[in-house]
Design a protein around this nucleic acid. Sequence first.
DNA 1: ATAACTGCAAACGTTTTGCCAGCAT
DNA 2: ATGCTGGCAAAACGTTTGCAGTTAT
Lengths: 139, 139
Amino acid sequence: MSDSNFRITPQRQVILEELRMADSHLTADEVYKMVRARLPRISLGTVYRNLEIFSRLGMIYKLELGGMQKRFDGKTQDHYHLRCLKCGRIEDVPMEPQTMLEESVEALTDYKVLGHRLEFVGLCLTCREQPETQAHKGA
Amino acid sequence: MSDSNFRITPQRQVILEELRMADSHLTADEVYKMVRARLPRISLGTVYRNLEIFSRLGMIYKLELGGMQKRFDGKTQDHYHLRCLKCGRIEDVPMEPQTMLEESVEALTDYKVLGHRLEFVGLCLTCREQPETQAHKGA
DNA sequence: ATAACTGCAAACGTTTTGCCAGCAT
DNA sequence: ATGCTGGCAAAACGTTTGCAGTTAT
């Protein structure tokens, strides 16, 4: 792929649409299931290939958080994430990226700091209120 | 494992020693290779099993950073990490955990925030100075 | 004709698991 | 005798890749 002769095929169209329609943070497999409802013959390999291409082109955002599957996000700009330890739900944090963190680290080390990834973990409202149940699974 | 009848077997002893001797951030496979030099018959499964147990007991620290293998760290207390994009080296950041970040997120959302993970990426001194070479690999 | 793209299946690297034997209590 | 533990091999998991056929230019 030369990144310039990039065609919007039906598969790519549908993958993008589903990613943008979902309230974000889908795993490749979830994207696959959703797309397959509209294009039953699409393959998981195609989904992976195109998610990778989209993210390389900056069309979507690839989340690689700790110890989990990759997730893909229709949004492009950087933001922090918040994960519920009990149900696994992932949400965006309505907080501006703290660039001063990078400045501090650059002052403290001999690295050229190019970015940072910040993830919060905790318990969502639902899971705090239902102490003994697994409220929901997935994104 | 009931976590109380926990025995220090030779395997466990050596795994812990190697983890504490190394300057940290080993992958399970690296631990396996090092331990095997002293206990040639140990199996990779045993290494994984015990790393998991140690980290559950808080005896070591399990790093699960974005999109990579897990790494294990003899140190116990929380700290931030800094990864070189070019050579993959991972270092500790000499910075105190910023608990006020968690307070901000708790104020901004309806989550009970229990922790956070912060990872910086950039270029280490070596890799900045040798622009065209891959300086070193691994931890 | 050429290059990009897809579906399919196989391969991959990492991690987990089942099983049985061995050892400590 | 009970139960934790280790070695081994197989399985599982998420992801990537090779290939052959298809589609668009």
